[in-house]
Amino acid sequence: MTLQGLIIQLLSGISTGMVIFLIAVGLSLVFGTLQVLNLAHAAFYMLGAYLCFWISSILSQVTGAFWWALFLAPLGVAIFGGLVEVLLLRRIYDREHLDQYLLTFALILIIGDLCKLAWGVDFNMVPTPWPFNGPVIWGKIIFPRYNLFLILCGPVVFVGLWALIRYTRLGKIIRAMTYNREMANALGTNVPLIYTVVFMLGCWLAGLGGALVSPMSSVMPGMDMVILIECFIIVVIGGLGSLPGAFLGSLIFGLVNAFGILVAPRLAIAFAFILMIIVLIVRPWGLMGKPE
C-alpha cells in the first residue's frame, strides 16, 4: 500500500464519517433535550433522500436543481417532523421508554410505507450536482469532488450547531433544559415549543443527511435501516446527547470502517461493533458523554 493509497483511504473514511455525523448528531440532539430515543430518525433521513430525489427530478430542467432540492428537502422533513412531534410524540413524553420505542418504531414502518406509496419501490438516482461531479486528481491521488464537499459539510454543520447551542438564546434554553427540565419549566420556559423546535431541528439534520447522501448512492426503500444501526454505534461511542461526541464518534466510525476494509475486509463490519462493545465496557457513558 502506497502513501497515496493511504491518503485516499483516509479521505474516504473521513467522508463516510462526515455523512453519518449529519444524521447521528440529530439523533443525539433530540435525545439530549427531549430524552426520547427516536428510532424513526433514520426514516426521516430516508424521507430527506426521497424528497431530494423528487424535487430534483421535478426541477430537472432548472439549473442548480439539486441545490434547490438540498435547500427544500430538509425543510420539508423538518415540517413533517414538527407535525409528528405535535400530533404524536408530545403525548408520550411522560410514558415509559417502551411506549416511546413502540411509537417511534411504528413511525419507521409508516414512513417507509408512505415513501413506497409516493415513489414506488424502484431504485432511484440523483445526479451528482455541478460543480462537484467527477474526480479531483492531484498526481496519483484521485478522489471524488463530491466527497470532498461532504467532508466540508460535516465541520460546517458541527460549528454551526455548536455556535447555536453556545451563543444563542435558544441554545441557552436547550442547555438549561438538558441540565434540568423541571427547573427550566419553572423559570417560565415554553417547554413544549422548545421541544417542537428541537425535534424539527433534529429532523432537518436527518433530512439534510439524506439529501446529501442521495447523489453518491441510490435512493431506495430500506436505506434507513442500515444507517440507523450505524447511528447507534456512533452515539454509543461518542456519548448520547453530546455534540462533540457525535462528531468524534462519526470520525472514528468512518476511519475504523475505511481502514478495516483496507486491512481485513472480511471483518470491516465487525470492527465498529467491537469498538462499541469496548466503549460500553470501559466508558458506558461514551467518550464525550457525562456519567449519570
Binding site: M1, T2, Q4, G5, I8, Q9, L11, S12, G13, S15, T16, V19, I142, F143, P144, N147, V213, M216, S217, M223, V226, I227, N257, A258, I261, L262, P265
Partner: peptide, 13 residues
C-alpha cells in the same frame, strides 16, 4: 451497502 467510497479507493490502490 450505501457508502462505496472506502471500497472503491481500496480497489483503485
Amino acid at each position: 451497502n450505501q457508502d462505496w467510497t472506502p471500497y472503491i479507493s481500496k480497489i483503485m490502490a
